[in-house]
Design a protein around this nucleic acid. Structure first.
Lengths: 219, 219
DNA sequence: CACTCCTTTTTGATTAATCAAAAATTATAC
DNA sequence: GTATAATTTTTGATTAATCAAAAAGGAGTG
């Protein structure tokens, strides 16, 4: 069996490579896992020896087919657990990421299958991220970044791609949760900001924050 | 935070000492955790240095107040998780022990509190073992060992004190689950066996097996 | 008291994961 | 085409947990 640490490296590699599209640098990997570059290098070697990654020294790493499959399964476990914690145990959506981070490494496939069933075979987690199927298929929707929307555009919030608890709390407090409908009032390139109508309040977000909110365009 | 390994040693010490009644020998501890005596000795030292256990070299270990409190909390987590897996996720009662063994080390107190609430603040786990309260109180019932019951005695199964999956499967298949009512038909000291009427079948158990079944006497 | 037996402790090695700091490599600049 | 900067890799140490095997300790027997 894989250690939690190995699973975390696999998951990070999956994310940083954009599901295997591009090579990942040692430095980026190290940063994303909060370890030193030396630690990343040595784990990369371990993964390569185990046939889970492909390493060209000084030119980055990429998961092998096998590594990618394992990584996708960790992501699947993570997202099913998150939804379970929110829907069944009624946890706050900003707290479940940290909890799932721990559970994903120890929960058996049997338990995941039962959670999946109890949840009605969901396809999206509480943050709007797709839940890969058992055979590792991601169903990606064609989404747009809120930061790129034009004035007057009405949109449906589809996904918050930031797991930071305080950002999630902030988003929720302004009605920016998956499923919510909002309208872009104004955008100001110079001020680097976009103003939205959400429920009956008006909020202005910087582009960096608006970047983390993905939407579906309406009408 | 404590490592899973430390938590497992604490739990084993709690059990082997009969909730702190008697000192535990290094050998017994090692055996119960499937490690060599040397490993046990070195962990005992670690626990003693951390103030979680009291070690008299060559004369056994005992948990300190602090160690005992921590151990009881691990047991509480374990048993709530077991009941959750059976009642909410509908797992088989013989499979939940192994799963809970993993989960007990990573599930947060918040999740345990939510499971506890969802289950209706239960006091017994699926095997009839008491679930300690948040403040560490065990409610022990006055139970009898089935092996000591007399002929003609009608009893209610209260607890199966064996977590072995195949034994649990066997017990269940003969109706020997907590809550079931059975009657002692015969006991035979020489044959080391006891014969029971359970549902509409008759089964004979050796005393060793009957020892693991605890009961409440009826009428 | 000495001898043996059994248990416990100690010692030295190993594995996974990490870090800090030194060395090597690649990329960039002039 | 050498020097400089940035990144990556290597090296050597550390920590937690373990094992195998050697050494030490306690208990019972004669």
């Amino acid at each position: 069996m894989l250690t939690s640490t190995v699973e975390n490296y696999l998951k990070a590699l999956l994310m940083l490579s954009n599901q295997g599209e591009k090579r990942v640098s040692t430095g980026d990997l190290a940063k994303s896992l909060h370890v030193t570059p030396g630690s990343a290098t040595s784990m990369i070697k371990t993964l390569a020896e185990a046939g889970l990654a492909n390493h060209k020294p000084h030119y980055g790493v990429l998961l092998t087919e096998e590594g990618q499959t394992l990584a996708v399964h960790v992501v699947r476990r993570h997202r099913i657990i998150e939804l379970f914690l929110v829907n069944i145990l009624e946890m706050e959506w900003d707290a479940v990421h940290a909890e799932a981070e721990q559970l994903e490494h120890v929960v058996s496939d049997d338990v995941i299958a039962r959670m999946d069933k109890l949840l009605g075979y969901p396809t999206l987690d509480p943050h709007g991220d797709p839940i890969p199927s058992v055979d590792g298929i991601f169903i990606e929707r064609p989404l747009h970044q809120l930061s790129h929307c034009e004035e007057g555009q009405r949109v449906k919030v589809a996904r918050i791609s930031d797991q930071n608890s305080s950002f999630l709390k902030f988003a929720e407090s302004h009605g920016l949760t998956p499923g919510a409908t909002i309208e872009v009032q104004r955008r100001n390139e110079h001020a680097d900001s976009i103003t939205l109508q959400s429920n009956d309040e008006e909020i202005t977000l910087g582009f960096t924050a608006a970047n983390r909110i993905e939407v579906e365009l309406l009408t």
